Computed example of a mutant assay.
Amino acid sequence: MRTKSPWRSLDDLEMATVEYIDWYNNRRLHGELRHIPPAEQEALHAMTRPITAILETG
């Protein structure tokens, strides 16, 4: 993640915000999640849940 400031334009601020959100959601190490990134925890959780399907009858 870049730490460049002050931002020179609204585009610079927008890019910094997008980079921060990406880091926060995908790469930061979360202490409550055994120090793994939230995206990795979500993937592990999805793999351990049973697959259910809704059957439509017609």
Rank of each mutant, 00 (worst) to 15 (best):
W23F: 09
K4F: 11
A39T: 08
L29E: 14
L55K: 02
T17C: 03
I36D: 03
A39P: 01
A46D: 12
L55M: 01
I51S: 10
L55Y: 01
D12N: 02
W7H: 15
E19N: 13
E56S: 10
M1R: 09
A43Q: 08
T57G: 01
P6V: 02
E19W: 04
R28N: 04
P37L: 10
I21L: 06
R34F: 14
R34V: 13
I51D: 08
H35Y: 02
E42G: 05
T3N: 11
A16R: 00
E14M: 03
M47G: 14
L55I: 03
L13E: 10
L29I: 15
D11Y: 02
R28P: 01
R28K: 12
G58R: 03
R8F: 02
P50S: 13
H30A: 11
T48S: 15
L55G: 01
H30Q: 14
R28V: 07
R28F: 00
P38R: 14
G31Y: 03
H30F: 12
H30P: 09
L29H: 14
L13V: 10
I51T: 12
S9D: 12
G31P: 06
L10W: 05
P50Q: 13
E19C: 10
E56H: 08
M47S: 13
P37D: 12
V18W: 01
D12Y: 00
E40H: 06
N26L: 06
Y20D: 11
T48V: 15
I54C: 08
T57W: 01
L44A: 12
A46V: 05
R8D: 11
M1N: 07
E56P: 02
R49I: 03
D12C: 00
I51V: 15
R34L: 11
D22L: 09
G58K: 04
W23G: 01
L10C: 09
L55V: 06
R27N: 13
D11R: 07
D12K: 00
E14R: 05
Y20F: 11
L10K: 11
A43L: 06
E42P: 01
E56A: 10
P37H: 08
L44W: 11
I21H: 01
P6A: 02
P38W: 11
N25A: 03
P37E: 12
L10H: 11
L13D: 05
